[in-house]
Amino acid sequence: MKRPVTLAAGLAALAGLLMIDALPAQAGPRAFISNERDHTMSVLDMDSLKVIKTIKTGRRPRGITASPDGKLIYLCASDDSRIEVYDSQTMELVKTLRSGPDPELFVLHPSGNPLYIANEDDNMVTVVNVNNNELVAEIPVGVEPEGMGVSPDGKYLVNTSETTNMAHVIDTSNNEIIENILVDSRPRFAQFSHDGKQLWVSSEVGGTVAVVDPATWKIVKKISFKIPGVADEAIQPVGIRLTKDGSKAFVALGPANRVAVIDPKTLEVEKYLLVGQRVWQLGFTPDEKVLVSTNGNSNDVSIIDVASEKVTKSITVGRAPWGVVIVP
């Protein structure tokens, strides 16, 4: 009779430990990282830089974002064709939302609603009301829609279609396409500057980032990259982040294993930071002092100090980390 008692006691102790583990002092910001190939989300405490929890998610989690107040985490479970919504404090699944087939990447309207979802397999952008899960609209776009950006005033949605090689500009008031901007091959990501005066679009296979003036929807400059010792073909820009003050832009360069630092005023590349393998997406901490890159082939994230432009640490997460969002 002794053994079961011991086991029970052990379990209780373990449960207690887990409880403590699951609810750390909620001081610092936390990064949520989607791991495409093991169907999990890693939660990284940004103060201790430790993974504090690994959450089992739907299959093939990719795009990830947070509500403006940071309370909800939205995650694309691509192979389950749904959006999962998590409470960022309890780290529990709150609800799921419709997404249309094969959602890859999405963007929230700056007000927090609706959610614009790129349906990679279906040449469509699905617009969903996050409060009641209603389908607001379906917008036909080019082949393999992926990148999604929304202007800071919420008036314009930009979707890139990877095979059509266009950035489609959509008027969010009526969900109509008002402009199609031809960019280089496999446009992956679209990001507006915080003042709304620049739209950045990365082209993975073309190896460039097009900077567009939203006043005219014309390309102002195509930024290209040269890294000594790295073949041009390996330089494949994907994720983009710009600081709120407009002083720095960071571009993840995929299999080049570098993040480029760019001056958004001159649009010149200033520096390349060596990170993990196949760097994919980027995310700032709320104070923008730290940038996190997801490195799909080395199964880790790199921590970048924004002020000194130095990579300070890499942390192992799940298999094939795809996206990252950091909430207070």
């Binding site: 469509m124 389908l135 379906e138 917008i139």
Partner: peptide
């Protein structure tokens, strides 16, 4: 109409 919730979204047919 693609602003409502059609039983069969036209864009699905499009594809």
């Amino acid at each position: 109409s693609r602003h409502g919730t059609p039983a069969l979204p036209p864009s699905r047919l499009l594809a």
